[in-house]
Design a protein around this nucleic acid. Sequence first.
DNA 1: CCTATATGCTTGCATATGCAAATATATAGG
DNA 2: CCTATATATTTGCATATGCAAGCATATAGG
Lengths: 150, 150
Amino acid sequence: MTMLDTPYTNTLRILQASDEIKARLSGEFSAVHGISVNEFLMLLHLESAPKHRLARVELAKRLHVSASTVTRMAAPLEKIGLLAREIDERDARLSFVVLTEAAHTKVSEAKATLAKQAGYLFQDRWSEDELEQLSRFLQRLLAGSLSTLA
Amino acid sequence: MTMLDTPYTNTLRILQASDEIKARLSGEFSAVHGISVNEFLMLLHLESAPKHRLARVELAKRLHVSASTVTRMAAPLEKIGLLAREIDERDARLSFVVLTEAAHTKVSEAKATLAKQAGYLFQDRWSEDELEQLSRFLQRLLAGSLSTLA
DNA sequence: CCTATATGCTTGCATATGCAAATATATAGG
DNA sequence: CCTATATATTTGCATATGCAAGCATATAGG
């Protein structure tokens, strides 16, 4: 047996890399920005959306969480003024989550933290070419997803 | 501005890919194997350890979770006979988590499920060369980690 | 127009997980 | 040997999250 199933090992390695990254980020995010990594990702999805707003169901799909989680994640972010609510005139069921001005600032700052940590993560032994090749691989892997934050 | 910070985008994409993968796996894992993806990862770490056992603190580090989480994750797995406990004769503080025989079977079955889903994930537009190149990239990224499941 | 079904959101309940305190044991320094 | 400190584990409490039920609104068929 060749003992090589690259899809299997790649999948496992992506899961591990993600856990590693989240562990590195979580401390600095709560301490410096007062939000969790998951909350940051929510803001990021909203930032990349038209009008910086999304229906809760749509946001849930992009974050791979349940609708109830969106309801509960958004609540404290509304309280601290990073998110607001908008209704749809044509469909009263819809309740959009919208980024506030303060949130744009917060997102910029948090992006800088992420960029810094990402820099550490890739600082050794990575050529510009390799970084871009990895980027293309990951983009291909995410091609089926609906989000595409980066 | 070139608008290209590949470490940043790569980091974000890894987080997204991981969420995507976990979402795909979680349903089938609970339904078919009766364990969660995280529980499977715990079993996998133990399988790759010498004597198929690890101290709880060590297991916590490799899974990037707290020690209390290990305590609580292991409890139900002990109840269903997948894990057992062993003490250290020289250090009474240590309480090893050990894989049972039943767990080896369970891990094999779950690995097959993961391999299948990984196959779907990479089935389109990936050459063997590209798969191995991605594998090397991810391995490099994980070089600093202590686990290395794959 | 009315009813049946579908969709979006929220809430109750159960599970998952982290942090800090509590407990037990080990180790170093006197 | 005794004490102070360090380490491993567990437990109490708070937060995070999913599922299913409940509620409001929309849409399709008659």
